[in-house]
Amino acid sequence: MLNNQQIDHSTGRRHVARAKILTVLTYVALVSIGVIMLIPFLWMVLGSFKTVREVMQFPPTFIPKDPTLANYKEVFSRLPFAHYYLNTIITSVIPTVITVLTASMAGFGFAKYRFAGRNFIFWLILATMMIPYPVTIVPLYVMAYRAGLVNTYTGLIIVSLSSAFGIFMMRQFCLTIPDDLLDAARIDGSSEFGIFFKIITPLTKPALATLTIFTFTGNWNAYMWPLLMVNTDRLRTLSLAIPLFNGQYASFPNLVYAASTMAVLPVILLFVFNQRYFTEGIAMSGLKE
């Protein structure tokens, strides 16, 4: 008895020591990878405080020698940035809300039901995702023009009300939810929609949060489609405005950095505020068996 306890004690101590080393190693890995991930972003932010001379200097500096806010002032005075923000918010929030809803419903439908045409429709979606856009974008533009959608918010939004990526991802996440759970709900008299909203949605919160942030980022940074669809300042989005600080011969990386930093900020804020949903999945919602 006593003997046993002693053994337990010593292995426990060895355990603690090993755990400590592991923790340190984990942090070393996390931090060093974090630095690689962070530096380009930090470069952009720091660059937005440099003068045009410093930003084009060689070898480059990392920390601004003589930090200035002039770039931000210039960006705001040269272009109606506030208006671009508004446009970008409109063309990002609406499609994101709709996509998250339509993609999660479709993903659930594909994952948890058997029905005629299921595999065919699913593979059709995957297949259309595989054709490179240089070939499809011209016919799509011609269609949009004939429908009178060029230079409209509708035209900007209509192409991103659903996503193959989202449907596929939500399908994969719904697969991991046990069927028993759904059957139990059905026995309790829940409708199929009730199952989706009361069981699937809470259980896939991390996936929904992920999809939200991905879709939002994608819409926020969308470039190609807005480039074709927008011919007026009234509808211009942030990503269209950023290259306007460069020309064929004259480039102003400092202004590009300032404009990009401001453009990126809302996405990062959303990501940070969205954080708690990433961890609120099955593990926390009471599903233990």
């Binding site: 974008i137 011209v138 190609m224």
Partner: peptide, 23 residues
């Protein structure tokens, strides 16, 4: 005059579909 200024790297990418559509 409605004037639109397009980054050089994307100039033809925007111009060509517009010509194709007649817009």
């Amino acid at each position: 005059i409605e004037f639109e200024s397009i980054p050089l790297s994307d100039y033809y990418t925007k111009l060509l579909p517009a010509i194709a559509a007649g817009s």
